[in-house]
Amino acid sequence: MLPGGYSEFFSSLRAFLPPSRLLHDELSRLAYGTDASFYRLIPNLVVKVVSEEEIIRVLAESCRLRLPVTFRAAGTSLSGQSLSDSVLIVLAGAWKRYRINEDASRITLQPGVVGAHANVYLAPYRKKIGPDPASINSAMIGGYRRKQRQRHVLRHGAEQLQDDCLDEDHLR
């Protein structure tokens, strides 16, 4: 059934994950072999993780067995970066917690929060997060990748200041 080291990997994950979150049937593997790019890779195993404890244990096992893993948030990326022909680790419907600090100058987000939802949480404070991809209604924080250049604001002068405030991640 499962090739090579995947069978052992599967058994060790079964110790703490229910079978409904360890998918390796033909249909599931195909279904998760797609992101928004024009590439396809079919994973041997799809693992749905809902907590930090789980991901830590999953990574410890994949590392021990030397199995490659890929993370998947919303799978809307366009360059083929959320695909795997080995183990696909999916942020299954969880990882949605957030906190906003007192003056709403900062928001702390788990990677499963959808970008637009973060802005909904911030709306009462008349704030939002910096990045604004066209995929904001679907893409999740885990998949956000805009580079931040805040420091460059200081280094390259006033002209860039404006640009950065509008466009770049304001990562603390």
Partner: peptide, 17 residues
């Protein structure tokens, strides 16, 4: 792009809407 590690939480500075 998930090639160095997994991001479990991230804090953003917000901008005015």
């Amino acid at each position: 792009e998930g090639t160095l590690g997994f991001i479990a939480e991230v804090t953003y500075n917000t901008v005015p809407d």
